[in-house]
């Protein structure tokens, strides 16, 4: 009996998680301009519209670019902090770590306003770097968490063995630490990539008019008039996300990368 309850519960959660994904995918296949679900006259009309529309395509490509850049920047911020925390006792690193965690925990809307004010005051308005660095700053605590986990998973005996064999700090970093920590760096980058891809509030407040990422364009369409085109973007993002996570899962050990028990 208990087994049935468990299955039912998991089934309900699965349905809950899947429902919006199914709806969005379904709507994108509509043959008409109506946002109906189930789709009316299903077809790939809106997919071809999306792909041939320079507005949507540029927003799509821009989003991918911004997300990739944000991921790289976030990792470039997170790695030194995690490394210093692991290698040396450093109050500065501890403090920076707290700052990074704070950025994630603060309500997005507050950060958005803060960033907006910051960039305006600098006179650096409507530039793509705004979005990139703002995203990197907000999401840096994710690669920080995963990379920290990566360093913690390093067996100290390996480092000691390398030292006795003559390795200096740089050697240890490149030969012992890098192979072990790299998967965690990648998974952290993937998290930032995906969150940045879908992030609307900060992107809008920070450079919304000039730098139109896909979520911004989608939100604007939402207010002006519905078109299934925006769901096409969502479906494309979903595909990108599945690919990214599946690569991580297949190449690495996804449960371990999320902090769970190793194989």
């Amino acid at each position: 009996m208990a087994v049935m309850v468990r299955l039912l519960f998991l089934g309900l959660v699965a349905a809950f998680l899947a429902a919006p994904l199914v709806i969005v995918t379904g709507v994108s296949f509509n043959g008409t301009a109506r946002m109906s679900f189930p789709p009316v006259h299903p077809g790939v009309l809106w997919y071809s519209t999306f792909v041939t529309d320079p507005g949507w395509m540029s927003a799509f490509v821009l989003s991918l670019g911004v997300a990739a850049a944000a991921a790289v920047v976030a990792v470039s911020l997170a790695f030194p902090i995690a490394y210093v925390r692991w290698r040396y006792p450093s109050r500065m690193a501890r403090w920076l770590e707290t700052l990074a965690q704070l950025a994630f925990v603060l309500p997005l809307i507050v950060l958005a306003i803060g960033f907006m004010v910051f960039w305006s005051t600098l006179g650096h308005v409507g530039r793509v770097e705004n979005t990139i660095f703002s995203h990197a700053a907000v999401f840096v605590s994710l690669p920080l968490a995963t990379i920290t986990m990566g360093f913690r998973s390093v067996d100290p005996a390996l480092v000691e063995a390398a030292r006795t064999l003559g390795a200096r700090d740089e050697d240890v970093l490149h030969t012992v630490l890098r192979p072990i920590v790299l998967p965690y760096v990648v998974s952290g980058a993937v998290f930032v990539f995906i969150l940045s891809l879908n992030e609307y509030i900060i992107a809008n407040f920070v450079a919304g008019f000039e730098v139109q990422t896909l979520p911004i364009k989608v939100f604007n369409s939402l207010r002006m008039g519905f078109q299934p085109t925006m769901c096409v973007g969502a479906v494309l993002f979903m595909v990108v996300d599945i690919l990214a996570f599946t690569v991580v899962a297949v190449r690495g050990d996804l449960p371990k990368l999320l902090g769970g028990r190793a194989r």
């Binding site: 891809l197 609307y200 993002f237």
Partner: peptide, 10 residues
């Protein structure tokens, strides 16, 4: 994690 692929807008 796929459900994260839906932005808050969608």
């Amino acid at each position: 994690l796929m459900s994260l692929s839906l932005s808050d807008v969608l």
